[in-house]
Nucleic acid binder design. Sequence first.
DNA 1: AATTAATGTCAAGTATATTTTACCTTATAT
DNA 2: ATATAAGGTAAAATATACTTGACATTAATT
Lengths: 66, 66
Amino acid sequence: MKNRIRIERAILNITQADLAERVSVTRQTINAIEAGKYSPTLALGMKIAREFEKTVDEVFELEEGD
Amino acid sequence: MKNRIRIERAILNITQADLAERVSVTRQTINAIEAGKYSPTLALGMKIAREFEKTVDEVFELEEGD
DNA sequence: AATTAATGTCAAGTATATTTTACCTTATAT
DNA sequence: ATATAAGGTAAAATATACTTGACATTAATT
């Protein structure tokens, strides 16, 4: 699962901790997802996309193994 | 997490087992998600939407508690 | 140079998604 | 009436997401 979280965060100029708070998870969770260590739940993915005012597909992209 | 899986399945005229096979999960998983018992992973949600040729947001809708 | 903010990471624990196996009900077909 | 297809459900096991707490590293600020 690839994602554009880092880029979208840069556009909004917010930190991982900021985003974490906005979507009600921990900073470590955002860090892991942003690094592609695992893919989030659908609910969290949708909340993240919503913060960026983007669709889920604009923020996340399926890869081979997913 | 609300969803329109039942409706989209009806449009494609496919069974829960059919959809399950297409997205590589078990029939019980589709049944549970369709019934709203839990929300899928982002990867699975995206695969389901893709089968319906819809966006994630057209198939799934966030609710209060999510 | 020193301090602070931001990010990276890790281990252990909890929560939840998914599988497996199995059975039950309802509708449809033979 | 009986068989078959489709859906509903449940318990136990496994996989994975997420939390908590802590520490290390890098970037930015003064």
